[in-house]
Every structure is written in C-alpha cells, then in structure tokens.
Design a protein around this nucleic acid. Structure first.
Lengths: 194, 194
DNA sequence: GTCTATACGGCGATAGAC
DNA sequence: GTCTATCGCCGTATAGAC
C-alpha cells in the first residue's frame, strides 16, 4: 500500500480510537491494530501521538467546514438564515453518525489546557463560529444557539444516551426534543445495539 | 486531621485535577500532591482511582442539584418557568466558577463508554433533566434549551475561550452572546490571567 | 492516620533488520 | 514500506513500618 493510502487509513482508525477512548486513553497500539499495522509504524509515520491527534483534529474540522459550506451553497440564493440554520443542524446530525470524527473534535475541546492542542481546538471552534456568522448569515444569537445545539448533541452521543432510547422513557423524551434528526439518531441506536 | 476532614480535602483536590487533566490524564499522585498527602494514602482511602472519580462525580452532581433546588425554592411561588430558567442558568454560570467541580462532571459525560462511569454519568444527566422538568416546571423544549446552554458553557470553559476574551474580538462576541452571566465570565478571565 | 519502598504492567518512542 | 525487539518512564496498587 502506498504511503498516502496508509496515511488515510491510519487517520481514519485514529479518529475512531481517539473518539472512543479520549486523547490520553487512546494508545498508538490500539490505533495501529485498528489500522492493521504495527505500533512503531504509526509513530514512525506521524512522529508523535500528539501530532497524530492534531492531524485527526484538522481533518475532522475540514470535513465539518466543507459539509456546512456545501449545505449553504446548495440552498437557494436568498434562503432565510433561520431556515439555513435548521438545514445545517440536520447536516451536522448526519455527520455525527461518524462517531469517531465528531467525538475526536469534542475530545479536542476538552483539551483546552494542553499547550499544543488547546490553541488548535480554540482556533477550530472559532472558525466554525465565523463560518455560520459570515457565510451563512447567522446573527450572533443564532450562531450561539446553533453551537449550543451542536455541543448538546455531542454530549448526548458521548454519554451514550441514544443507546437507551427505547429502554428509558426519560432519555427518549430528551432525545426527541434535542435531536434535529430523530431518524438519524435511531439509525445510530440500532447500529449500536447490533 | 480526622478521616472525614481528609476525605473532604482529597475530594476537593481530586475535582480540580480531574477537571484539568481529564479522568485518564489525572494521576493519583497529582491528586495526592494537591491535597498534601502521599499517593498510596489516596489509593488506600478510596480503593481505586475509578472509585475516587465516581465519588467526585457524585459530589459535583449533588452540589449542582442542591443549588438548582435552592434557586427554585427561593423564587416567589408561581414564578414563570421561563423566568426560572434564566435564574437557574445564572446560578449555573456562577457554579462554573469552581472549574474543577463542573469540568469533572463534563469529563464524566465524555466517558459514556466506560462500563463503570458511563452509567453513573447517564443517570446524573437524566437526574438534572428530570429536576428542571418536574421541579422547575420546564417544558421538554425549555429543558433541552437549558441543558444545551449548559453544555455550551462547559465547552467554552473547557476549551479555554474566556482567556481570550479581550485579545480576540470574535471570542468576545461569542462569549457575550452565550454566557448568561457575563460578569462572572470576566471575573474568571481576570483570575485566569493573573 | 500516614508514610516509604517497591512490585507490576503498560505505553511511547527508538534501533535496526528485511 | 513495514516489521520485531526493546528501552525507559510513569502510574496504579500493594506491603508493611511507624
């Protein structure tokens, strides 16, 4: 396999592992196993674990921004920002299906105190804010609401509430009122229970 | 010092350390140093690191619920739920001044996959939801909005954005529109920069 | 009630062969 | 391009003295 192909598959595996175990809890060995290579090879290719995480973070952010821009571009010109907000929220919920990608982002947010990761996470977060404000035309209030909803969704997925959707009526009620895309959540659920 | 006093001071130190470094990143040695005791003594007193974290989690949750109940009880009878929501949000922002306590909760939320911590975190989260719905009279929509705002605040603090309040105008704008208690945030900021 | 000493396992990173 | 072997550190937990 070529260098670039390997890079891609390792980064993909790393996103899943980092999302599931967190930055500190994830091991380069677990990433290696998930990607089907040896542990030293992962280190060799990315230098350090920290650097590997930074690349995962950057990738996740890129995908997020790209997706949002596509939704904005595909909306008819002159679409109301409020409507656009619902569309982007929906796209975000869909993106959340890829647990690793988004949970890695969330893990990055929790590492604000880290001297190398903190600045990258803050910059990424502000980049998203600027995108919805400048490119989607959200008011600061709308942008805040949008990001709040996103953080809530991230938390609900991280805490594992969707898995209790049909065993706990309170969890169900909460999810029904917070998930912009109920169908997607349920799809996740059934996948999780399988 | 008596056993109970020590317990309290170790738990307090543990909340700060867990909040700052995360569950995996925190070491029992760091907790011990922060509490001014030896590392084996911390383990001796709480059995395992996992158990120590569960106690910190329970304490944080208790303090949260107690605070919310006090706000509800102190509000004049028949206060509108919408008004109550603003009051509780304000109390939450104040509580967030104790970084360790609330960030420990947030760290717990990120550990939903852990077989021991996950269930405790989910139960705690739902307990908060039930409180604002049943005792404060929030509609499910309001409860969702309230929790979303809380998760957003947690994230903003965790990522360290308040520290950039007066160096980055975008960060400032974002914080101005998301923090229910601007004064508290600024107080935090100045403390952080000191 | 609190410590010192230490066993034990695990992880990131390096060296070097193929 | 990818592996095996391995070093060295660090963290949890135990044993046992005072």
């Amino acid at each position: 396999m070529s260098c670039e192909e390997r890079r891609g598959s390792i980064l993909e595996a790393a996103a899943a592992v980092f999302g599931e175990r967190g930055y500190v809890g994830a091991t380069t060995d677990a990433v290696a196993k998930a990607a089907g290579v040896s542990q030293p090879y992962v280190v060799r290719m990315f230098g350090t674990k920290e650097n590997l995480f930074l690349e995962v973070l950057g990738r996740s952010l890129d995908r997020l921004l790209t997706t949002f821009r596509r939704v904005i571009a595909e909306a008819p010109a002159g679409t109301d920002p409020v409507e656009l907000k619902a569309l982007i929220a929906l796209a975000y919920a869909d993106l959340l299906q890829d647990r690793g990608l988004l949970l890695s982002l969330m893990q990055g947010f929790m590492l604000g105190a880290d001297p190398a990761i903190g600045p990258a996470a803050r910059a990424g977060f502000l980049q998203v804010y600027r995108l919805v404000r400048d490119e989607a035309g959200f008011s600061p209030e709308m942008a805040g609401e949008f990001l709040s909803g996103g953080m809530m969704l991230n938390t609900l997925v991280a805490i594992g509430l969707p898995a209790e959707y049909d065993t706990d009526p309170v969890a169900r009620e909460l999810l029904d009122h917070c998930a912009p895309n109920k169908a997607a959540m349920i799809a996740r659920l059934s996948k999780e229970l399988a």
